[in-house]
Design a protein around this nucleic acid. Structure first.
Lengths: 227, 227
DNA sequence: TTCTGTGAAATAGTTCACAGCG
DNA sequence: CGCTGTGAACTATTTCACAGAA
């Protein structure tokens, strides 16, 4: 019953997009959607989509497609979205503050229940309705708020140390917003998201496109204006 | 000369991390670093790292390792970081505001040169030192500020429409922070980053780990307390 | 007849293991 | 002697193409 652990990582990474597009389709009144259509919305190959859904044991109807509400229910369930996942934001600098003020988290099932820092001039201040607490109290805070998910937004040099602390205090999922990778025990799930990383990747591609346009390292393409 | 286009996508996605750890090592005074050490810092297999660098034609010294400064120079160059990439933030809601206030962008070579929205009550206000301009003027703004990179932070329902507008106005790289995928011409590089997506993936893994702990769908593990 | 579900082929990416350079 | 660079084996993922269900 339910998703078995043969769901590939690549598949998992696509599920949130399938979910979002299924929600959109359901809201738009489409009761059913074909793999071709949904794949187009998400930007993947239809065969990939069908295989992904099959790996979650989500079945469609031949000749018809997938039931949108069923998709929302099943994908949401696979992602664990039938429960809330309260989070703590650790590091209330520029970035932590921005994340604390971002209402999108709460709206999508990840309410921010506490803000934590260790700088005396920050602890005790109020940010988006929450009083910033001290990192030293983290274990009690996690207990009190039933939080197992942390968003790490410290300065990079403190990231590993704070991550160790969080794991010791009972965090089992860590979303790392710092510029550096952090290590943690196998039992802790860690993902890293970094704005600058994404932009750097974009600039790589942009630069490559520019070189290609100038013909650097690319076979010269002859204009073939006759037939 | 320089990076040829045989650099794989997986490699490209790792470059920013190699860069960051190389910078850290160089700052820490290490003039040279082995693939084993650097790979450990980043959390990849050493062979993967060596292959990645080789694909960029970045050479190490046998018996010694890689020169850290050379790494920083070459990886930075491959990523196009010898130039600044000014960006425009489109959509000054909760998220756009947060991004505008986040100083990490400027620090890492992506200065925010303009904020753009189309809501009358937002246009004309000042956010982190910039006056929010109207989306209708986007083409002129891009020209004026030499911007080719846009950060898309609109409400999801407007994302595709605004993306089309941006591309029409000359944007060639698009970092999509909305919950939905957007389509664009092949000449435009698009990446999507979504906080909730990342958290949903974490909750998938967390849920899977919880089921495993309860023995659902997993072979029962006997405690073997004798030797 | 349309659209799913999936073998089988193709492609991409990772890792081992070791020759050989400095 | 240590560490890079890389063939070769392996694993993961995508995509084609089509049988067959509704």
């Amino acid at each position: 019953m339910g998703a078995d652990s043969r769901v590939s990582e690549a598949t998992i990474a696509r599920l949130p997009q399938y979910l979002q597009s299924s929600i959109d389709a359901a809201k738009a009144g489409e009761s059913t959607i074909s793999s071709d259509r949904l794949a187009e919305l998400v930007g993947v190959n239809p065969a990939t989509l069908r295989r992904d859904l099959a790996s979650l044991e989500i079945a469609g109807t031949r000749g018809v497609g997938y039931d949108t509400k069923y998709l929302v229910f099943e994908i949401g369930g696979a992602l664990g979205l039938n429960q809330e996942w309260p989070v703590v934001i650790v590091g209330v600098g520029n970035l932590g503050r921005a994340l604390g003020n971002y209402s999108g988290l709460e709206e999508r099932g990840f309410p921010v229940r506490a803000l934590v820092d260790n700088a005396p001039d920050v602890v005790g201040t109020t940010v988006s309705g929450l009083v910033v607490e001290h990192l030293d109290d983290i274990a009690a805070i996690l207990q009190r708020e039933s939080v197992t998910v942390a968003v790490l937004a410290t300065p990079p040099h403190a990231a590993q140390e704070v991550a160790d602390l969080l794991v010791g205090a009972g965090i089992t999922s860590l979303l790392n917003f710092t510029a550096v990778a952090v290590q943690a025990a196998e039992t802790v799930e860690v993902r890293r998201v970094d704005l600058a990383t994404e932009l750097q990747i974009l600039s790589f591609y942009q630069q490559r496109a520019n070189s290609a346009r100038n013909g650097v390292g690319v076979p010269i393409e002859r204009k073939n204006e006759q037939t």
